[in-house]
Design a protein around this nucleic acid. Structure first.
Length: 966
DNA sequence: ACTCTAATTCTTTTT
DNA sequence: GAATTAGAGT
């Protein structure tokens, strides 16, 4: 890319090691090269070890790549760098917290410690289940919030609210907010008023003033609001909104709302810690508290040099963490606001745009009461280093890229072009041959058009790209020689030189399907809605059929087999299923595992592609941890389908195929020829659903409710909340992030760019300086021989990290065979559920003898109860295995830990197998509470027998796990 | 020329 | 449920 020697700007970055630097690293400017060189350069200073340099990246992959490249450039080899702090914020803080943070929760007034075996939940479905359980208990506990809950249609949205607050650095403690971090929740009145005044200026029409932006975007129907809300005439002026009603709206009483959000947030944190788990966001919060409170730890861990990559993708909390983790003012943040496209993940573009202002403010916030940031962050000493030499694209591409940042997104969109251009990093091309083809094509059937254009481009001399490395340019060459050398490297493009980007996944999916029909080689990269595929739906159908001859299941299967709707209905009515299918169902019922069942289904239907393999991988992964029955598998599939979960499918296409991906997933990559597709109205720029929560946080308004419950007229009703409606109407809607997304798409291209749109192009397509052309597509299907030449081979990625295994996997399956002796698994589930509810003080009374026995046992204990604790035991096996299980109940007394597992068996024949299970819990508990005695016991609920077992040694468990893993 | 109403269609993904 | 925009209405 940059040859061997850095250019002037890069050299300045590499050699400026001490001090505070903000680096504006535009697209394709050799950022990774410069950072790794800088790292190596710092290492050369006397007395500096890798340990002294913290390098933070956005993804795990990026961290690994950085370490690799550094190893190439420094005397340290990859093994020596393995323990160096080159990591993501999350990875790094997780280590810190586990090592030093056991007591941290007490700083917030929470008794539970952070155990070694802390479970960091990444699976959104699992977390939302836990959160929902929490919130229903919360609702019971806090009848005073009943009217608030009445207005909240989906309590699950409170979860994303806590995530958002965590990323803003808002942290709850038992009584109020930690270190005044809650002050931002009331909003910024001054900032709001200044925006309001701007937006409420009347516009200029041909016949005098017309409605202001704010006035025209607020609609007001009196009957939608509570009876005592202001009326339309109080709010809406001729051309402006009345200022006093807007001020009244901003100053509405929110004390109770704030208290509610505090209680939900704080009690959820408490709930999670009680159950030994945290989310990524909450984990960072605790790491932050630890570093703020514990001066000893802070001084011990902080680093002489700190570098943060992709700084435009950090949030406020991460900015503050950066300051706490630096020992001196040797801080270097690298990023590009123009490529900030993750706002929906609560990243803050202002972290890099207003770096100087923020660093000063955050320092003083952090130093309240105690000096936590000891070094000077004087704004005048902060240097900005721009990297402006682009090694990727031609000048034509770069010039179009500039336009994308100011292109109007809607018809009347007024973009402050000058203000944006002032902020822009201008990029200079370093290519010599600018042979760029840049065009905008449109046709009613956009997919046909794209395929047609791909065929038009492949093998076309006009779209030449660099096809070989030789001859290389050297510094000694003259301008003309370099140009000639570059021209000589050019040649006709093939499929693999092309990437097609789409704003959304659904368009990409349609395109992929059509490409398959025509035999045009194309491979999708990135997340796939795996549970929304035919494969998943059929599997779900067969699971339902096996479980209960479910009608929906049969309907899906019959439809797939080609039965007419009418015929299928007759079959369903008579329950006269086709013989072959019934036989197949019976065969499925015999299969012992969910994975085995899925495999039979996929074999039967001839599904052996990426989706089927991906599903098998997911299912076997889950079966090992939590799934064991068909009904659990059904629930799992349904939940994922509903949540629209996406799974990364790794496709390694044949040698020569077009890459297809979303723009987001293309960030950081480059391609010789880029198609930017689907630039249609409502698709790109995209707009529509804002976040669904009834309670929202928005700058500069702070926390607001969107709807309220009231019985004002004697009839209970959920009204729209008028202050929120008025205030949000005063805020301008901006499409900046959509424009930046467009910018990212265009700057991926090295040489050629094709913009495509269908029947109704968006302003992004029509308002650029490239004139759109209507093209009549004619796609030629490829012959079968052609297609066979590059059939796809697709692999499922290997699981990385230690293998997770359920404790049940190390037990002999036969114990389950006659365990329940006719009482069914449901019976066991009910008893367990009762026990959990009973411990948590829910209002339940025992049903049946088993439950009475459980209640009696629980009453006999004194101590702190912790039900349903996830236990994680990493084993030192090769390959490493981690055992996972759920402890029914943990009873904690000052000197003892009791582990209790309920069994509803009628006899004790399986005790030897249970001993393995409980031994795992024993070792987890012993490690977490080294100072207390741990006992493991089984409680047989039927016979009221409480049996203590002696734990197996760790070595024995390793052997068993190893054997089960074969 | 301006305002109002009805019709239309609704995303991205890492830790 | 909300934002845009086309088109009807004033």
């Amino acid at each position: 890319m940059t040859g061997i020697s850095p250019n002037t700007e890069q050299r300045r970055l590499i050699e400026s090691t001490d001090g505070i630097y903000r680096v504006n690293a535009g697209a394709g400017t050799g950022k990774t090269f410069s950072i790794t060189r800088r790292y190596a350069n710092i290492l050369e200073q006397p007395g500096i070890e890798p340990e002294d340099i913290l390098l933070v990246t956005f993804t795990r992959n990026a961290a690994a790549e950085m370490a690799d490249r550094i190893a190439q450039q420094s005397p340290y080899d990859p093994v020596q760098l393995q323990d160096a702090p080159i990591s993501t914020f999350h990875g790094y803080c997780y280590q810190l917290l586990r090592r030093y943070g056991h007591e941290t929760p007490s700083e917030l007034g929470i008794h539970d410690q952070i155990p070694q075996s802390l479970d960091l939940i990444e699976d959104g479905i699992r977390e939302s289940k836990l959160f929902n359980t929490f919130i229903s208990q919360f609702e019971d506990r806090h009848p005073e919030y009943e009217h608030l809950f009445a207005a909240i249609n989906d309590p699950g949205t409170l979860r994303s609210l806590t995530t958002e607050l965590a990323s803003k650095g808002v942290i709850p403690e038992r009584n109020g907010w930690y270190q005044e971090t809650g002050s931002t929740l009331t909003g910024d009145r001054e900032a709001f008023i200044s925006i309001f005044e701007q937006e409420n200026q009347p516009n200029e029409g041909a016949y005098g003033p017309t409605q202001s932006n704010a006035r025209s975007s607020v609609s007001w129907t009196d009957s939608e609001y509570v009876p005592d809300a202001p009326k339309a005439e109080d709010v809406l002026g001729d051309t402006q909104l009345h200022r006093d009603s807007v001020e009244q709206a901003f100053d509405e009483d929110r004390d109770e709302l704030l208290e509610f959000v505090h209680d939900v947030y704080f009690e959820y944190l408490e709930y999670a810690l009680q159950r030994n788990y945290l989310t990524q966001g909450l984990m960072l919060v605790l790491a932050f508290v630890m570093l703020s409170e514990d001066a000893t730890v802070r001084e011990q861990v902080r680093h002489e040099y700190v570098m943060v990559d992709e700084f435009q993708d950090t949030n406020e909390l991460q900015f503050k963490l950066t300051l706490l983790l630096a020992a001196e003012n040797n801080i270097c943040v690298v990023g590009d606001w123009q490529q900030s496209i993750y706002g929906f993940q609560y990243t803050s573009i202002k972290n890099i745009q207003e770096f100087g202002e923020r660093i000063t403010r955050y320092k003083s916030e952090l130093n309240r009461g105690e000096t936590r940031v000891p070094y000077s962050v004087d704004e005048t000493e902060i240097e900005t280093i721009p990297l402006e030499k682009n090694y990727r694209s031609t000048a034509s591409i770069l010039s179009l890229a500039r336009e994308t940042l100011t292109v109007p997104a809607t018809n009347g969109d007024s973009v402050d072009v000058e203000a944006i251009e002032d902020e822009m990093t201008s990029l200079d091309a370093t290519n010599y041959v600018d042979n760029s083809q840049i065009k905008a094509v449109t046709h009613e059937d956009e997919i046909e058009l794209i395929l047609d254009q791909i065929q038009h481009v492949v093998g076309n001399e006009e779209y030449s790209v660099e096809v070989r490395d030789e001859p290389a340019s050297t510094d000694e060459m003259s301008q003309g020689e370099k140009e000639a050398a570059e021209a000589e490297r050019l040649g006709k493009p093939s499929y693999s030189d092309i990437a097609v980007f789409s704003r959304n996944r659904s368009f990409a999916r349609d395109l992929l399907e059509k490409a398959g029909e025509y035999g045009i080689p194309m491979a999708y990269e990135g997340g796939v809605e795996l549970f929304d595929t035919d494969q998943a739906k059929l599997l779900l159908a067969w699971l339902r059929i096996c479980e209960s001859d479910d009608q929906r299941g049969w309907a899906t299967v019959l439809e797939e087999a080609g039965y007419t709707l009418q015929h299928a209905e007759e079959i369903l009515d008579d329950e006269a299923y086709p013989d072959a299918m019934a036989t197949f169902r019976d065969r499925l019922r015999e299969s012992e595992t969910i994975g085995g069942l899925a495999r039979i289904v996929f074999d039967e239907y001839g599904y052996d592609g990426a989706y089927a393999n991906g599903l098998l991988g997911e299912l076997t992964g889950m079966v090992e941890t939590t799934l064991s029955t068909r009904s659990e598998a059904i629930t799992y599939l349904e939940a994922n389908l509903k949540a629209g979960s996406t799974i990364e499918i790794d496709s390694s296409p044949g040698e020569d195929s077009v890459t297809l991906q979303t723009i987001h997933s293309a960030k950081g990559l480059e391609y010789p020829i880029v198609f930017c597709a689907n630039i249609n109205r409502r698709a790109f720029p995209s707009y529509g659903k804002p976040s669904a929560g009834t309670i929202q946080y928005q700058e500069p308004l702070g926390l607001r409710q969107r709807s309220v419950y009231s019985e004002a007229n004697g009839n209970p009703y959920v009204y729209k909340h008028w202050p929120n409606n008025l205030l949000t109407g005063c805020l301008p809607s901006t499409y900046d992030e959509e424009r930046r997304l467009f910018y990212v798409a265009v700057t991926r291209a090295k040489r050629h760019l094709v913009l495509t749109a269908g029947g109704s192009p968006s302003p992004f397509f029509t308002e650029l300086s490239v004139d759109p052309v209507e093209v009549e597509p004619s796609v030629e299907p490829r012959t079968i021989e052609d297609m066979e030449k590059d059939t796809f081979s697709i692999t499922v990625p290997e699981q990385s990290g230690p293998q997770r295994m359920s404790v049940h996997a190390i037990m002999d399956d036969s114990v389950y065979d006659d365990i329940e002796e006719g009482r069914g698994t449901e019976f066991g589930d009910e008893v367990h559920q009762f026990a959990e509810d009973y411990v948590q003080g829910a209002d339940v009374s025992p049903v049946g003898g088993d439950q009475q026995n459980v209640a009696k046992l629980l009453d006999s204990f004194d101590g702190e109860f912790k039900p349903e604790i996830t236990a994680i035991l990493p084993l030192n096996t090769e390959p490493p295995i981690t055992l996972v299980g759920i402890i029914d109940l943990l009873v904690i007394t000052p000197d003892q830990i009791h582990i209790i597992d309920y069994k509803t068996d009628l006899s004790r024949h399986a005790e030897a197998e249970y001993r393995k299970q409980l031994s795992v819990y024993y070792h987890v508990a012993s490690e977490t509470y080294p100072d207390r005695d741990v006992s493991i016991t089984i409680f047989y609920t039927a016979n009221d027998e409480h049996v203590e077992l002696s734990p197996l040694k760790l070595e024995a468990l390793c052997d068993t796990a190893r054997a089960a893993n074969q």
